[in-house]
Design a protein around this nucleic acid. Structure first.
Lengths: 177, 177
DNA sequence: CCCTGATATTCTAGTACTAGAATATATAAT
DNA sequence: ATTATATATTCTAGTACTAGAATATCAGGG
């Protein structure tokens, strides 16, 4: 199962949902911090999951305004797939191919002054990201333990990266690279 | 420019190459640690870059055995694109959507025993990866400063992740999550 | 002179989304 | 009535690879 499929299946596993509702849950929870599912992909993924027999749909009248909704709920097959995909995701460290290392591998090809500037931008962006995440978790507290852990994980990695990049920048400034 | 395109363009920027040669350089340098370009994609990417006017080709007789080679070299346009893409890669922290956080977000849906087991697997895999990287850098030393920095960056992040996961596992074992 | 194996490129048919437009329904305001 | 707005789904045409088979060339051994 792909990441995108698992992201959608997770939400249906929690409770029956229709496409538009999923979009709003993703938005409301800020899930785009850890998954990448565009609005236009949700319906595509729902259809894929339905074809795989992991979810099934029924039509339901809208409560407020708007046309009928197609509400999906998880099947037994889906439930099993959900658990095993979750276990797989938790047990295998995923490679993450950041453009950063690709950039680093090209360091010798660019003027040192510009490289330094770029690295400083990187640090600043990262620092903003860190601050935004810290603020976000602060506002939402108290949070369930596993959600707190997710933020803690992300923040730990960002902090480690910040520490490294600070060190590297001073090395570059000193002409050590 | 996409990551894959930049990876190929980097190599052509270094020296003129043909497709098969690129495959062997990628293999020899262990570049698949930080980029993802399958053999079957190399020719596709070369054509794309040529169409964009970033590289140009000429036919050349093979030195040893085998048919004529199509040797690509970088153009002025390509050179500029290479520098600016490298700067872009160095200045923008890329998001990395690991399946791990997706798994974490599904923690409540799975039996605690299995979750713990999965996390332990994760730790073991990560630990192996760390050891492999450490060994790799050790063997190859001495290395140019920027390459040393790339290994150092990767190792720092892996170590931070290891530290976090160890801590989290003990928390889970203690029933704190 | 054919065969093997290393070298080298091309082609076909997929996969997994993704952007954005088109379509449709219902409520509320003008 | 008309218009705007929020809700909701579907469709078309891409993008960016990617797997794997097909094809071709050439050197050296039998």
């Amino acid at each position: 199962m792909t990441n995108a499929e698992l992201a959608i299946l997770s939400l249906i596993a929690e409770k029956p949902c229709h496409g538009y509702q999923i979009e709003r849950i993703i938005e409301a929870r800020g899930m785009r911090d850890w998954t990448e599912v565009g609005f236009s992909s949700i319906y595509y993924l729902l259809k894929k999951l339905e074809q795989a027999g992991m979810i099934e749909s029924r039509l339901e009248q809208s409560e407020g305004q708007g046309p009928a909704r197609k509400v999906y709920q998880i099947t037994e097959i889906g439930r099993e797939a959900h658990v095993s995909a979750t276990l797989a995701a938790l047990s295998e460290p995923g490679r993450c191919y950041t453009p950063f290392l690709l950039g680093m591998s090209n360091l010798p090809a660019i003027p040192p002054r510009q490289a330094l500037e770029a690295l400083q931008w990187y640090r600043d962006h990262l620092s903003e990201r860190q601050a935004a995440l810290e603020a976000k978790v602060e506002i939402q507290r108290p949070l369930p333990g596993y959600v707190e852990a997710m933020f803690d994980y992300s923040l730990n990695l960002i902090r480690a990266e910040m520490a490294w990049i600070e060190k590297f920048i001073t090395q570059v400034e000193a002409g050590d690279v």
